[in-house]
Simulated scan of single mutants.
Amino acid sequence: MTAHSPIAAQIFPDEARGVFAAVYPDEAAKLSHGLAGHPLLSIEALAGLAERMPAASVEYNLGKLPLGVRPEDTPSNGLSLGETIRTIETNGSWAVLKNVERDAAYGALLNAALAELAPLVEARTGAMLNREAFIFLSSPGSVTPFHMDPEHNILLQIRGEKVMTVFPAGDEELVPALQSEAFHAGGHRNLVWRENFHGRGMAVKLLPGDAIHVPVKAPHFVENGTGVSVSLSVTWRSERSVAESELHGLNALMRRRGLPTGRIGARPERQGVRRLAYRVMRKLGV
């Protein structure tokens, strides 16, 4: 298989798609995949990809961080991005390549993966919107701090091993309402960590060929193993995730005016009146 050849083999086996169908969209679950060893996901291929990506689409820093590090305290590693990736085994760093689907070959890889899941997703949360892909590279022992993401996400482990600890979405002790509102208004993904949170999470060990479904805004952190780790994250939005974002936005607007906030239900896409109110208020600049 060349770097630009079509993806012929099934990426998510039948058993993995069955597990995914049983848990989507609300529960985390371990899956399997067939992309380990793909030529587009080698270290050298990823270094080349990174060097042709716009600066705004890459993020990298030292990798051994506290679980609750503040965004402004994240230290630089002092290297260029290409150097960071090519020497990832020894430089103690973490890097993410964002929106790699903008490159045609990686876009084809994303579309092939999500095409296998689309019927299952559409039956629960409607069409897959804003399909995106991210690639994470980590030095041995790196830690990705406690955080949450706004997308439906499946993380595929390509090389090395890591343990991802995932927490339930919607727990306001883990993510207070004010933090959700700030997050949907463009706030940082990192969350405040407390040691008493440990028992609420599900720790999942990921080896090459393993994957994990992470629900929208399910808090999590990642601890890398003793080797270099490469992971591919395939993500999408849905009417449900968009609706949740809109309703948190409405609550933020109401809260700022001293007005009562509303409950966000398990099916936020059905809260049409409140979503319309948010859109009108945004349009009027209220």
Rank of each mutant, 00 (worst) to 15 (best):
A113W: 06
H184M: 14
A133M: 07
H38Q: 04
G82R: 14
F12R: 13
N196M: 01
L178F: 11
L207P: 01
E223P: 00
E51G: 06
A211K: 10
V286N: 01
P140R: 03
V100P: 05
N251W: 04
K64Y: 03
Y60E: 06
P145G: 08
Y60N: 09
A252D: 00
G225D: 01
E116S: 02
A29T: 03
A22I: 01
A45Q: 10
L49A: 04
L79R: 07
Y106I: 02
L156E: 01
I154A: 07
A56M: 09
R200K: 13
A55D: 12
G160A: 10
E89P: 00
L155V: 08
G34S: 08
D171K: 00
I135Q: 15
N130V: 05
A218Q: 06
E173H: 05
E72A: 12
D103K: 07
R52V: 13
L156A: 05
R255A: 05
R52A: 02
L79A: 09
R124T: 15
G258C: 08
N99F: 11
W94H: 06
H4C: 02
S57G: 12
P150F: 14
P208T: 14
T261Q: 03
G265Y: 00
S229F: 11
R102Y: 11
E83Q: 11
V69P: 08
F136T: 02
H220N: 06
Q271E: 14
G68H: 13
L67I: 07
A8Q: 06
S139A: 06
N153L: 05
G107K: 13
P39Q: 09
E246H: 02
V143I: 15
R131F: 06
E51K: 10
H38A: 08
K283G: 15
V228H: 02
P219C: 06
D73C: 07
R275I: 05
